[in-house]
Simulated scan of single mutants.
Amino acid sequence: MHQNYTNLCLLLQPLIGAGNDGVEMVCADSWVRRVYPILAAYVADFLEQCLVNCCKENRCPKCVVAANERGDALNSAMCDPESTKEILHKCKIGQHPPEFEANDLHAVYKPFWADLPHTDIFPVFTPDLLHQLHKGVFKDHLVKWCINIIGEDEMDAHFKVILNYPSL
């Protein structure tokens, strides 16, 4: 298993008890309250998001869209942590669920987020500017849609007439 992944298991271990049982904290108004801390955001690049999601790098780390359908105008179901854990568990005990291959999963049998209470790891990922915004939104979606509308030759012609911008 990836070393950073193992370190995350150790680092986030205290969140399991704190999220289940709560911890007392002094709030800004000086009152002591019981709070239940959770993992609410995860900042990572696209490749690490795929590692955390237990999926291969050609898949979306948030939804179950097929790799060859990314950029198409369709609504894909979001990844479900419970079904993902179930699929990984079946794989671990020697069963070969078809969803394992269909979802292009990696054999990470105990994801670090598996026991974190009140945590759905998939929506907590923050966007990766290079892979998800530039390559994903611009290249995979906008450019693909524009090519479908005006054609590849016309799209190339528009890019060719863009003036050089030396500091870009």
Rank of each mutant, 00 (worst) to 15 (best):
residue 108 V to I: 11
residue 122 F to E: 09
residue 23 V to S: 06
residue 82 E to F: 10
residue 54 C to S: 13
residue 110 K to G: 03
residue 25 M to G: 01
residue 62 K to A: 13
residue 100 F to I: 02
residue 55 C to Y: 02
residue 106 H to Y: 03
residue 72 D to E: 14
residue 45 D to Y: 12
residue 71 G to S: 08
residue 18 A to D: 08
residue 40 A to W: 10
residue 72 D to R: 10
residue 18 A to V: 00
residue 26 V to N: 07
residue 46 F to Y: 13
residue 95 Q to R: 13
residue 88 L to I: 02
residue 53 N to D: 15
residue 122 F to C: 14
residue 91 C to T: 06
residue 14 P to R: 05
residue 79 C to W: 11
residue 116 L to F: 06
residue 54 C to H: 01
residue 116 L to V: 05
residue 55 C to Q: 01
residue 92 K to M: 12
residue 71 G to L: 05
residue 115 D to R: 00
residue 103 N to F: 13
residue 45 D to A: 09
residue 126 T to F: 01
residue 70 R to E: 13
residue 68 N to A: 12
residue 49 Q to G: 02
residue 81 P to R: 15
residue 36 Y to D: 04
residue 128 D to P: 04
residue 97 P to C: 05
residue 19 G to D: 05
residue 35 V to N: 00
residue 43 V to I: 15
residue 80 D to Y: 11
residue 40 A to M: 06
residue 82 E to C: 12
residue 72 D to M: 14
residue 106 H to P: 00
residue 87 I to Q: 00
residue 38 I to M: 13
residue 97 P to F: 05
residue 64 V to Y: 09
residue 38 I to V: 15
residue 25 M to I: 10
residue 57 E to C: 14
residue 16 I to S: 04
residue 23 V to L: 11
residue 70 R to T: 11
residue 54 C to F: 04
residue 131 H to C: 05
residue 13 Q to G: 10
residue 55 C to H: 01
residue 95 Q to E: 15
residue 103 N to I: 03
residue 95 Q to C: 12
residue 52 V to T: 10
residue 81 P to L: 15
residue 124 V to T: 14
residue 89 H to S: 07
residue 98 P to F: 10
residue 118 H to W: 08
residue 37 P to L: 12
residue 118 H to R: 13
residue 72 D to N: 11
residue 76 S to E: 10
residue 128 D to Y: 07
residue 27 C to F: 12
residue 55 C to I: 03
residue 46 F to H: 07
residue 114 A to W: 04
residue 73 A to H: 10
residue 79 C to D: 11
residue 35 V to W: 00
residue 12 L to I: 12
residue 48 E to Y: 05
residue 81 P to E: 15
residue 123 P to F: 04
residue 49 Q to N: 07
residue 18 A to Y: 06
residue 20 N to R: 09
residue 88 L to G: 02
residue 123 P to N: 09
residue 37 P to G: 13
residue 93 I to W: 00
residue 129 L to R: 08
residue 100 F to T: 00
residue 76 S to P: 05
residue 110 K to Q: 09
residue 96 H to G: 04
residue 29 D to L: 11
residue 108 V to K: 00
residue 124 V to M: 12
residue 123 P to W: 11
residue 74 L to A: 07
residue 43 V to P: 02
residue 85 K to V: 10
residue 116 L to Q: 05
residue 23 V to Y: 06
residue 71 G to W: 03
residue 50 C to T: 02
residue 108 V to L: 07
residue 26 V to P: 02
residue 39 L to Q: 03
residue 78 M to V: 04
residue 33 R to W: 08
residue 49 Q to A: 07
residue 58 N to I: 08
residue 109 Y to W: 08
residue 115 D to W: 02
residue 77 A to P: 09
residue 123 P to A: 12
residue 26 V to W: 06
residue 107 A to I: 02
residue 19 G to T: 07
residue 118 H to P: 00
residue 113 W to C: 01
residue 117 P to Q: 11
residue 97 P to E: 06
residue 90 K to P: 00
residue 101 E to P: 00
residue 23 V to C: 11
residue 91 C to I: 01
residue 30 S to D: 13
residue 92 K to T: 01
residue 109 Y to E: 12
residue 53 N to T: 15
residue 106 H to A: 03
residue 72 D to K: 12
residue 92 K to F: 10
residue 114 A to M: 14
residue 127 P to V: 12
residue 34 R to I: 15
residue 37 P to K: 11
residue 94 G to A: 15
residue 25 M to Q: 06
residue 116 L to P: 00
